[in-house]
Amino acid sequence: MYLNANNISYAYKKNKPILKNLSISIPDNKVIGLMGDSGSGKSTLCKVISGYIKNYTGTVTLDNNLIETKDFYPIQLIFQHPEKTMNPKWKMHKVLSESWNPPQELMDTFGLKDNWLGRWPNELSGGELQRFSILRALNPKTKFIIADEISTMLDAVTQVQIWDALLDYCKQNKIGILAVSHDKELLEVIADDILLFNEINKL
């Protein structure tokens, strides 16, 4: 399966385009790395592809089919800041099960401790919360993961552990990944191809 974004253009404010005629293709058996300057529009592209921004021009397709928006969106975005993506008055087990109930082994591979499930989001660290938001995105209906600087707040060891678990799961379940990062060394390890944002964005 291929995720294709064709001729995407978008501007938050008129006359100030952020994305212009941008095309990108991601196969479900690969990890595509994306690098670019700060403020150039990488996160904006991620939001377009995963359905958060709707009023763009161009198309986002899975094997040439437009995506049904009412159901579970098969392209899941993982944010840099997980705390904003969680209802502050929900305990973690509820936060997780809003998407699905992952099996115990999977929770273990991501280093999720059982007692975290009974806590509120503000009682966990950013790195601990990020494991939840990654796991939440790995719903069986997910076909592609857009990872927007998901490991910047983690220490080197945890970063390796989490990426290992994520890559492993995605390989087994045929989930393609778009990984955005400023960390060139990280992308060289995890990505099959690395794209430079300024080259694909035709501003």
């Binding site: 995963s50 359905g51 009412k70 579970f72 969106y73 904003k84 993506t85 209802n87 809003e98 998407s99």
Partner: peptide
């Protein structure tokens, strides 16, 4: 907020979001 947008991404209906979130 982003958790409401995420909830729509998970395919939750407007009613569900109003009631639970």
């Amino acid at each position: 907020s982003e958790y409401i947008k995420l909830s729509t991404e998970f395919g939750k209906s407007k009613m569900w979001i109003a009631k639970k979130h």
